[in-house]
């Protein structure tokens, strides 16, 4: 029936508009929901969301060990050549040669924080940090080596 459809249309529209208005009125009256961070003012107490992606870092434990095996999966996953893995060969106590990283070079100035390297890493060696104040006076300071000097791979990570 045309008329019933018409009336249904009108009431359906009113109902859906009302739903939208109710939501915005809730936000209008509940100022605790405000998500604006007044950044330079609240620098000391700034809380970033968990998923904020600032830069790629490689966590080290207290024995100066990391989890990177030097498999270059991150380098292959990177869409704009931000990561370069420089490998070397360690001699294990049994006298065998074993591939390990010499340096994991990370170009912060090229990075778009797309998270693909973190997804690609099979051993969870790298992750995204929440730092974001990256400005420096010299471009060369943005090229970073992620593994700390003298660090070696953690026991049991293959």
């Amino acid at each position: 029936m045309f008329i019933t459809d018409y009336i249904k249309d009108v009431f359906g529209a009113m109902k859906s508009l009302g739903t939208g208005l109710k939501r915005t009125l809730y936000y209008f009256t509940h100022h605790k929901e405000i998500i604006t961070q007044q950044y330079p003012d609240n620098r000391a107490t700034l809380v970033l969301p968990d998923r904020f992606k600032g830069e790629v870092v490689m966590p080290h434990d207290e024995k100066n060990e990391h989890r990177c095996t030097g498999c270059t999966a991150c380098e292959l996953a990177c869409p704009n050549g931000t990561i370069k893995v420089v490998t070397k060969f360690d001699i294990t106590p049994e006298g065998k040669k074993k591939k390990a990283i010499d340096k994991l070079v990370y170009h912060l100035e090229l990075c778009t924080m797309c998270n693909l390297c973190i997804v690609a890493c099979p051993s969870d060696a790298i992750k995204m940090a929440q730092t974001f104040e990256h400005s420096v006076f010299d471009r060369s300071q943005l090229t970073k080596v992620l593994n700390k000097p003298g660090s070696k791979i953690m026991e049991g990570v293959e």
Partner: peptide, 10 residues
């Protein structure tokens, strides 16, 4: 102000 509060801004 109304716009900001509705959009959860300041």
């Amino acid at each position: 102000k109304v716009a900001a509060w509705i959009q959860i801004r300041l």
